[in-house]
């Protein structure tokens, strides 16, 4: 008997819908709102950063919920919401081939330059 075990780590969103966060069948979606990934820009000029996820019925509600959940303490000036099912993630099983080859290639790091003091946010 063959078992397939799908183990999802935090931040991994599988494409096949096998994760607990992706209700795909008709009966499930009826009772559960879709999941949204929320990105907040903390101030003008900076990037939107992923801050977490939440449930909402549609995009408008996702933005409003994000305002209430993630910006109560003046964390941001701009919100992006992306429905989680549209995020494609790398497979944790690929970690070895994806990331380890870069570990011993220090020459790829741009750490040999002198940055002028005026350059911020690098």
């Amino acid at each position: 008997m063959a078992f397939q075990i799908n183990k999802n780590f935090y931040g991994d969103i599988p494409d096949d819908g096998s994760g607990a966060t992706l209700p795909q069948t008709a009966t499930e979606t009826k009772n559960e709102w879709p999941l949204w990934e929320i990105f907040i820009r903390s101030k003008q000029g900076l990037d939107h950063k992923h801050v977490g996820s939440l449930h909402a019925a549609d995009a408008a509600m996702a933005i409003e919920n994000a305002r209430d959940v993630y910006t109560r303490r003046m964390e941001g000036v701009s919100i992006w919401a992306v429905e989680s099912k549209y995020v494609h993630a790398s497979n944790p099983d690929d970690a070895e081939s994806f990331y380890e080859p870069s570990e011993d290639k220090i020459y790829r790091h741009p750490t040999f330059y002198q940055l002028p003091d005026e350059v911020n946010h690098m």
Binding site: L54, N65, R72
Partner: peptide
């Protein structure tokens, strides 16, 4: 009714 709205109404 759900976590996000709990936070909204208490806000």
């Amino acid at each position: 009714p759900i976590l996000e709205q709990d936070i909204a109404i208490t806000n």
